[in-house]
Structures are given as C-alpha cells and as structure tokens.
C-alpha cells in the first residue's frame, strides 16, 4: 500500500475514532474523571467494550483465515518501565482529566484545558528526552519481546479471550448496579 493511501486511511480511522470519542462524551474532562470517583463510568464502559470488540474481532478473523496475525504489529513488553509508566500516567490522568487522545478531542471542540494538557504532554516528553541518559536503564529494562497473555500463561488463546470477555461483562454488570444506586 502506498504511503499516501496509508496516511489517508490513518486520517479516516482517526476521524471515526474522534467522532465516537466525542459522542461518548470523553472530550469532557469532568465526565472522564468521574470514572475515578465512581460517579460516571463511561471510561470503563467505552474502553472495555472497545477492547473486547476488537479482541473478539481479531480472534475470529484470524481463526476464519481472514486476517494474518503475523502481519499485525504487536507492541513489545517491557515489564518494569510499562508498570512505572502506567502508574505515572494514571496519576497524571486524574490531575489532567484527559488522556493524550481525548485531549485532542477536547481541544478540537473548543476546550482550552485540552490545549493545556497537550502542552503538558509536550513538556513531559521534552523532560523525558532531556533526562534520557539517566532514565535509559529503567526504560530498557525487563524486555520480554512481543509477548501475549496466552503465551505467558500457557493457556490457549480462545480461553484467554473468553475469560477477558467474561471479566468485562462482569465489570459492565457492576457498572450497571452502580448507575442504578447513585
């Protein structure tokens, strides 16, 4: 596929992604942050239904021979830095009320706080780059290569897929209950 069509596809997919994020209300920091005070569970509902949909789609397309998983990029696992990064990210998320993707949604719909988060992201990346020499050891530590849960747990992929689906449905049931009793 040519670069031009690949970038065109990127744009179109992005438009769909951004549209849906805004539709769900995730461009609004107050709504998003409500997740962590359990007053608004949209984040969990959207994130996990998207994850489960994509996971099931990938599993079955692969099994039906319609998708070659070997051609799909699987990010590599770096256990320690990703755990550390996740913790920092989560802390920042609660302060900012928006994540990198949703900050663009917010900014595009007129919210100046979206722009502020974007500014902060750039500053954070600059700080990381400047301090890279000190951070490098942690950054590159515990490399496990492209590793999936089925491989790690020695469990067939379909079983992991079914379990994750069940877990997500459980979370949704819990979310429903929380919605009903405010």
């Amino acid at each position: 596929m040519s670069t031009a069509s690949s970038l065109g596809i990127a744009l179109l997919l992005g438009v769909a992604f951004g549209w849906l994020l805004e539709r769900a209300g995730l461009g609004n920091a107050r709504k998003l942050v409500g997740q962590f005070y359990l007053t608004d569970l949209t984040v969990l509902e959207v994130l996990f239904s998207a994850l489960v949909t994509a996971m099931l789609g990938v599993f079955w397309l692969d099994r039906l021979g319609l998708l070659d998983l070997r051609a799909v990029y699987l990010p590599e696992t770096f256990a320690l830095p990703q755990a550390l990064g996740g913790a920092l990210f989560g802390g920042g998320l609660v302060l900012a009320g928006l994540c990198p993707g949703t900050s663009c949604v917010a900014a595009a719909t007129g919210r100046a706080d979206g722009l502020a988060v974007i500014g902060g992201l750039v500053l954070g990346i600059l700080a990381f780059n400047s301090a890279f020499d000190w951070l490098r050891q942690i950054y590159a530590s515990t490399p496990l290569g492209p590793l999936t849960l089925p491989e790690l747990l020695h469990v067939p992929a379909g079983i992991v897929v079914g379990t994750v689906t069940a877990m997500a449905l459980g979370v949704f049931a819990g979310a429903r209950r929380l919605r009903v009793q405010p």
Binding site: S49, V52, R63, A157, G158, I159, T163, T165
Partner: peptide, 21 residues
Amino acid sequence: WLLAVAVILGGGAAAADSLLA
C-alpha cells in the same frame, strides 16, 4: 444484542480452543 454477541463470540472462542482443539 451486544451482550448476546459478546457471549456467543467469547464463549465460542473458549469452546473452540478447549473442546474442539
């Protein structure tokens, strides 16, 4: 509807990799 689809596809995945594998 969404629940039904999730249960069928998720359950089917687990079944495919345990019973029929």
